[in-house]
Design a protein around this nucleic acid. Structure first.
Lengths: 351, 351
DNA sequence: CTTAGCACTCTTTATGCTCGTCTGCTAAAT
DNA sequence: ATTTAGCAGACGAGCATAAAGAGTGCTAAG
């Protein structure tokens, strides 16, 4: 059934007001700040029918109204005001991404951090599936005496690099040759493929067997380590929210954040593109009530992963959406071969 | 004035009991669990004099006794039982360090994380002073088309590496030559020296001017970024502690953790070696009461930084000391040219 | 010096009470 | 038919009071 315009206005008033104050909204509040032309009695009548319709709740008889998840859903879909980032918010984002960021892990951490800082909620970021990353390039560089660095470049960015011990007397040339050999063998394959297949498929010669094995090892442990690893930043920010004024509630929420097996289903979204807003998702099981807003991160058009916020159902969706939209754009602009606007890049003069 | 053996036993009983339960300790408790041979009245007499001496406190007249900071200090110095890590605790530590860890930042994060996991408090780790790190080696590696990776190896380990954009047509040889030239110029100098000095000192020829400038830039921004940066892991663990059952207290503590300017003086310890236990340090100013235990991390005998825990004054010092001692040893064993016992390293066969 | 016993202090918990807020309903007004 | 004013009723927040329980301090005896 369609809602009258007035009913929608009242829902918006309740949600806006409740987001701001976290206190049940009375008919007088609505009259004063949102609909001065109506009497409180009329508003009360509307409130009563909206409650019957499932949009509002009443903690007890003599209390104001509180929005239900249904009301929030309608709000984000239709009623929410558009909002632009303020100057200072833009500055915060720029500050975080004004550096040279290489590793995927760093991108995730920075993203989660900046989101948390602006929204005052917990920022989350994660890679959808490392196994799907396509290897572009593998470099092995000798560092000091007996250690070497393995750098694996994928379409998602530079994977965390790993050192390995090597015999002192191996020459630079060997590493160079090994690098280009391995690059030739792996390039174009996904990490998943490389992990699963054995040396025969890649036609590895005896000479580079050892390097091959080592790199497979590194990839395998990387895949295991990062499987569904979610980066969380600013979880303590949740304490600022009045819904967690009770330490028990706060603990329950932290438990959810710390348990990856419970958290992941809550985060997952159907759509692989754009923003996803999940309000009180069923997947959360007996975990505490929460809402999750995520944006899809891309790099050169490739889906890297997701970033967003998690927090109580009462959150400033309007602000969060504008932040995430901006971050989505910014992160997509970061990449190994980017052309960023500002002086973020210093071209190195050729020889 | 010297304490009688019995007084010490009673202090130990109070501290042990209070660490365990976080509840004021009554004379009956002490009799039952620690000194059954004495009567509660005798114990009460002792408790009264210990309170006068400043070792104990009484929340109110009809409550049991609570140890003062003085009592904790005596406890860690003299009364604390020795404790070995349990099998499962050892396993946790091994799990964290069983990987190839390259970057300093990763060492810090892992260390803080494992400490937090075992102690159920907030783990901290930080580098004493990046500017004092001595550069060993600088490598510039071309990755894909127009991006290159700069790897700076110091005596502390591999610094976070940074990418830079380069013209497409630069050849590998140029990077190789630039790497060895820059290594020749910087090797043996500290990061601080390199940041402060200009090109003349390093006799940079025109040819490598651009690389030189870029690397200086990277180092400078690194030094600024990491100045006094403290890695914190598991801050939400603090909520498990009953002293933060009140959200206000918890928030105050989180504020301390988030403010580097307030946190650093609390962490700093006089001694540059071994374990430091600071109980209710004066430096904390008007920040909430806390205790900090830190160990010095070394790498090839070089002082890297500190790692430890921060939490309420009531913490299981005995356990923490044993954990930190073990971690101190383990981390010192990690290094680019290490000879670790187990199969953590796979030697790569020569050519 | 140690101990038993008892009075005393102070917190904790439960109970009852008042006050203010906000609603729901009814009847009148538009 | 909708809106509004007015009023009774419901409920929580806050406060005082009372009773119960825990643990001490003190005194006097062992």
């Amino acid at each position: 059934m369609a809602l009258s315009e007035r009913k929608e206005k009242i829902i918006k008033a309740v949600v806006d007001s409740y987001i701001d104050s976290c206190e049940p909204v009375s008919s007088a509040d609505i009259k004063e700040y949102h609909l001065p032309s109506l009497s409180t009695a009329t508003i009360r009548n509307e409130l009563a029918t909206l409650e019957e319709m499932g949009y509002l709740d009443q903690p007890h008889t003599s209390a104001g109204r509180v929005p239900t998840a249904e009301a929030y859903k309608l709000y984000v879909e239709k009623l929410m005001p558009e909002r632009k980032l303020t100057k200072s918010e833009l500055d915060i984002v720029r500050k975080y991404f004004d550096h040279k960021i290489t590793e995927i892990g760093d991108v995730l951490r920075s993203t989660a951090k900046v989101i948390s800082e602006i929204t005052n909620l917990t920022g989350i970021a994660y890679i959808s599936d490392v196994r799907r990353a396509v290897i572009d390039n593998v470099k092995i560089v000798k560092l000091t005496g007996n250690s070497a660095l393995v750098i694996i470049v994928t379409n998602l960015g530079v994977l965390k690099d790993a050192t390995l011990s090597v015999a002192e007397d191996i020459k630079d040339e060997y590493f160079r040759a090994a690098s280009s050999f391995i690059t030739g063998a792996f390039s174009g394959h996904t990490i998943g493929e490389v992990c699963d297949c054995d040396e025969l498929v890649f036609k590895i010669t005896e000479e580079y067997k050892a390097v091959f094995d080592t790199i497979i090892e590194i990839l395998k442990s990387y895949v295991i380590d990062e499987r569904g690893k979610v980066v969380l930043e600013g979880s303590s920010k949740l304490l600022e929210q009045p819904e967690y004024a009770d330490v028990g509630k706060a603990k329950a929420m932290f438990r959810l954040l710390e348990s990856e097996s419970e958290l992941l289903p809550v985060l997952e979204s159907r759509d692989d593109i754009g923003l996803s807003i999940k309000i009180a998702p069923e997947e959360s099981g007996n975990a505490p009530e929460c809402a999750v807003v995520t944006a899809t991160l891309t790099n050169n058009g490739v889906n890297i992963g997701k970033a967003g916020v998690i927090g109580p159902i009462r959150m400033d969706y309007s602000k969060i959406v504008s932040v995430l939209e901006y971050i989505e754009k910014t992160v997509s602009g970061l990449s190994t071969n980017d052309k960023r606007e500002k002086n973020n890049d210093k071209e190195m003069a050729g020889e």
